[in-house]
C-alpha cells in the first residue's frame, strides 16, 4: 500500500494541516516508510482475538453524581484566548 499525493491531501485536510509542494512530497515519502513499517502487523495471526482498547480491568466506567461542582470562572478561563468579545470567543466566521 503506497501513499500518493491525493492521500496526503486528504489526510492534510482531515488533520487541518497544510504543506507546500516540497513538504508534501517529503511527508509522502516518510508516511510511506511508516506505513510500510506498521504494515508488518499483517503477518500476525489475530484470528479470534478481541481488540484491546484499554489495559484497565474495571467492571464499568466511573460515573459521577449529577451535582453542580463548577462556578463561573469565565474571565480566568478566557485569559488564554486569542480573541474574545462580550464573553464570547471570537472566531473566523462560521458558514452553515
Amino acid at each position: 500500500m503506497s501513499i500518493d499525493i491525493q492521500t496526503v491531501n486528504k489526510l492534510a485536510n482531515l488533520s487541518k494541516l497544510e504543506f507546500d509542494d516540497t513538504g508534501k512530497e517529503e511527508v509522502r515519502q516518510k508516511l510511506n516508510k511508516i506505513v510500510e513499517f506498521i504494515s508488518q502487523l499483517q503477518e500476525v495471526d489475530t484470528e479470534n482475538i478481541e481488540p484491546m482498547a484499554s489495559t484497565v480491568h474495571a467492571t464499568s466506567t466511573r460515573e459521577r453524581e449529577d451535582k453542580v461542582t463548577e462556578e463561573n470562572h469565565r474571565d480566568e478561563f478566557m485569559a488564554n484566548a486569542p480573541q474574545t468579545e462580550m464573553g464570547f470567543f471570537v472566531v473566523p466566521r462560521v458558514v452553515e
Binding site: 459521577r64 453542580v68 461542582t69 463548577e70 463561573n72 469565565r74 478561563f77 464573553g87 464570547f88 470567543f89
Partner: peptide, 17 residues
C-alpha cells in the same frame, strides 16, 4: 463535567475547563 446546564445563562459562564 460538573458544569450547570441551566438554560439562558450569560455566554460561557457555564463552560468549565
Amino acid at each position: 463535567s460538573g458544569s450547570s446546564t441551566t438554560f439562558g445563562a450569560e455566554p460561557n459562564t457555564q463552560a468549565n475547563i
